[in-house]
Design a protein around this nucleic acid. Sequence first.
DNA 1: CTTGACCCTATTCTAAGTATAGACTTTATA
DNA 2: TATAAAGTCTATACTTAGAATAGGGTCAAG
Lengths: 129, 129
Amino acid sequence: MKIGDLAKVTGCSIQTIRFYERKGLLAKPHRTEANYRTYDNVALEELTFIKQCRSLDISMKEIETLLQNKNNPDQSCASVNALIDEHIIQVNEKISELSQLKMTLEKMSKSCGTDKTIKECGILSELTS
Amino acid sequence: MKIGDLAKVTGCSIQTIRFYERKGLLAKPHRTEANYRTYDNVALEELTFIKQCRSLDISMKEIETLLQNKNNPDQSCASVNALIDEHIIQVNEKISELSQLKMTLEKMSKSCGTDKTIKECGILSELTS
DNA sequence: CTTGACCCTATTCTAAGTATAGACTTTATA
DNA sequence: TATAAAGTCTATACTTAGAATAGGGTCAAG
């Protein structure tokens, strides 16, 4: 499997795959004589795992931790649970922030009707105060 | 007013003020003989405007647009309204994404009880599939 | 007159990629 | 078989919105 094929089946871009490798998230693959990367199903599974994590907005640093955990199958998975729960807390915080922001923006939007000039603009006056 | 004073009253860091200047968001201030920046109340107002916008997560590029608008007081402010409304849409989209994400994470969290090992971990098995 | 609190520029770093240039290899077509 | 197109390689720069640092200059108090 060449890098283009791996990109196609995982939905990652070629640059992203090389980027993960450079960052140590993805193991260095074998190379052909022409120095082309070749991947097996293990690599495919690893990249799928990374992709899945990223789609959940788990950071690369956190993914590194998870990958280390995966290499110790008999250890407790409590830290994995903790990581996800911490992540949920952060997502909740972000949602709260954005909801607050949304209300502020909507209030601001209503403060300016149509056919106003810049100097009469309710939005700009709120932004200046 | 020196940069440290401006930083204190606006709540921006000194580096951030210099950064805004470098990016052209903030006008270049006068300098003392010792090359220290000195600011007047106009600068204070400008930075307050920028800070207010940033707190609403308005990008620096968008702030630039808004600042240009402010310099044409007799123009229509329709584009300002449009910018804010577009911003509201983006915030709503982000909230939707995060809500979806939250549900996925919570479902995942429930899929793994306490006292499991890594190889039995419900979270990791969902992340791998 | 020295010490501490400021200020200056320039450079590097962050996250998670994306984009580009210039060179090489493989594959498909004529 | 020759050539063109598609794929791959490395290295580098760019993105956002700053934060951090090094190494130096300046100002006010004791």
